[in-house]
Amino acid sequence: MATHGHSDDGTDFAHPLPVWLLLTVFFALVFLTIITVAQSNLNLGSYDIAVVMLIATMKAALVGAFFMHLAYDKPFNVIVFLSSFVFVALFVIITLSDSKLTSPSFEPKFDEPATGELER
């Protein structure tokens, strides 16, 4: 905004992140990726999707907070970005729940295994 002062050193709005932080975040992300691949070999039943999504969200939070500078950004930008997830949730949850509630009336189509194509 025009009201902002104009400082001479020119770094008033740049926040270079230290290299060690970038590397730490990267190795944390790689570590989480290994964990998520490893856990997929365990059978956690219905918790599976929750665990997978939790790990993915942790990774996303790391990328967002540090690589995308959200931790240092203007609050308004953070709100803008996070509010998009509110609308995504709204959209997905309502559509999904309606589909779930009406699924008993569905009439799914099944077809013969693809081997059936041999007849031609």
Binding site: T95, D98, S99, T102, F106, P108, K109
Partner: peptide, 12 residues
Amino acid sequence: PEYNGDPVTYQH
């Protein structure tokens, strides 16, 4: 629906 899709989903 011919391929198990749902027209009501489209409307959503």
